[in-house]
Design a protein around this nucleic acid. Sequence first.
DNA 1: AAAATAATCAACCAAAAGGTTGAATAATGG
DNA 2: CCATTATTCAACCTTTTGGTTGATTATTTT
Lengths: 114, 114
Amino acid sequence: MVEQRDEQQLSEILKATSDATRRSLLTTLVQAGPTRVTDLANHYDMSLNAVSKHIKVLEAAGLVSRRTVGRNHLIEANLDPIQRIDDWFRNLRSIWELRLEKLDHLLTEDRNDD
Amino acid sequence: MVEQRDEQQLSEILKATSDATRRSLLTTLVQAGPTRVTDLANHYDMSLNAVSKHIKVLEAAGLVSRRTVGRNHLIEANLDPIQRIDDWFRNLRSIWELRLEKLDHLLTEDRNDD
DNA sequence: AAAATAATCAACCAAAAGGTTGAATAATGG
DNA sequence: CCATTATTCAACCTTTTGGTTGATTATTTT
């Protein structure tokens, strides 16, 4: 029953990325490299605490990692988990195409190639 | 300022797919083709109304469409919007790679190839 | 016409999400 | 050592989410 766990993980990744502020944080991190929480927070019209929370959501989803250097927490993007979204989508599309193939066979009444 | 709208749309798509039940609905629809609400609901341990709501979330995100035939509503998957997720990811990755390139130039102090 | 079926609408509820403010903790700088 | 800075923790609040049940609207069947 690993599937259950995978599903849960995928939900977490999708939910984490579904918030515009968090996507924006990811973009900033990807273009700026490891950045302190305070410096990230300065870009937004919300409290440091709110940003800190968003970072924790991203962290739980594995989309960022944290390296603590003294009192500074350096946050770094990690895009690997997004691959899971792509995997899911590819799988979905392959199921779709499989059905269309079968449908095509039925419609053309193509009984010669089995 | 179309970006704002795009962002909102992307959020909606990601949020819609972030729920395991809704992803499962999409999978069913993709493999079974257009399906009635009641038939969809039979697969789940929740009320018809709950499923009906989920379908509306998917519909709002453009991930399913509805064709009403008498009292039956035929729901059909539409995977096109998922491409937006892929676009976002590709963009993110390209920003990432751009930064790594610049970083590489700086580190190798490579002043000969500009 | 009446009964049954398919689906939504509306009101409600509990839990989660996204934000706030006010400590608390930990590291740095004078 | 003391003040400042960086960050999280905790409590709280409002809105959203995911579910329920009961009523309503359409359509079909008998």
